[in-house]
Design a protein around this nucleic acid. Structure first.
Lengths: 158, 158
DNA sequence: TTGCTAAGTCTGTCAACTAGACCTAGCCTC
DNA sequence: GAGGCTAGGTCTAGTTGACAGACTTAGCAA
């Protein structure tokens, strides 16, 4: 195989790295998983992710600062006011990341009984998942069908 | 909103967590990004990811142990034998994870000039990306269109 | 007044990351 | 065949971050 073109370009601007600098820390993905499952309270998050309280606190604060979660006060009848963490649109857009982690795990690391979570289309109930497709409507079945090319923001290595 | 069903189920078996325990460490995603860009050599990886050599060494070893990468010796004419790291099928299946991180970064954290990398369909050249669809062929446009349900491997919390 | 709970913060310990130097095997040149 | 070069690591010491467990605070309830 020939030398990959990628070696001629700088990685400093790569948006994978940019994404990871925001959500790439150890517990953040688990926090997001719970958020997508509808979990909104600190204590539920803490119990379900197993993250140390202090770490959870700092991850939630980071996600709020980045606009991925919104922290809003709410109050149940007869209860004192509490805080809840809800996904913003920016956070919702991270769903494909969680789904792709889930899909890989279901294929390669599912427990004996099968996957513990199934994703379904809200309207028709059929199983939902990610598909790799191109703008012309072809469905791609493998990473080999994709050719990465330098984009407008690419910078050559000096 | 009602109490999410997720609270009644155990997270210990969740395959998102299982996936993250294999590939969730800080530099691993960047290593995979480079692998998908065709980078195979230790030194190229090191230079492009910026990972400390020792960390890179241990991440590569972990990925090889998990069967995500294969370490194979090769030899260029007139050179001594070297090692290269190539994605296995199991590794190729992680491509959606990288693509989804890339897509989110392109939307929310792209550098001024635009995305540095474009993904294209190898056969037709059109832009490629992930879409959320259900088994009945409906395209889903938002995380809100997905309903997660307990799967066969779900375990109730005691 | 005391107790309870959600949502944190504080403290000490221990593991992980980091930078930078060092090592090693094969090849090349002299 | 001595020395240098390079890919692919390992070693060491210092710093940061994770962790468990105790403590804190605000509002409500008995």
């Amino acid at each position: 195989m020939s030398r990959p073109w990628a070696l001629d370009y700088d990685t400093a601007t790569c948006t994978v790295g940019a994404t990871l600098s925001i959500v790439g820390e150890k517990w953040t993905f688990l926090v997001l998983r719970e958020a997508f499952n509808g979990v909104r309270r600190f204590d539920d998050m803490q119990r379900r992710t197993g993250a140390p309280r202090q770490v959870l606190s700092s991850r939630l604060a980071r996600l709020v600062a980045e606009g991925v979660l919104r922290k809003t006060p709410y109050r149940e009848p007869g209860q004192r006011p509490r805080s809840e963490y809800r996904l913003s649109e920016k956070g919702m857009d991270l769903y494909p990341v969680i789904i792709s982690l889930l899909a890989w795990g279901d294929k390669y690391a599912a427990p004996p009984g099968g996957p513990p979570v199934l994703l379904t289309h809200r309207d028709c109930g059929a199983a939902a998942g990610l598909q790799l497709a191109c703008a012309d409507g072809h469905v791609l079945t493998s990473a080999r069908d994709v050719t990465p090319l330098p984009g407008p923001g690419a910078r050559r290595v000096a």
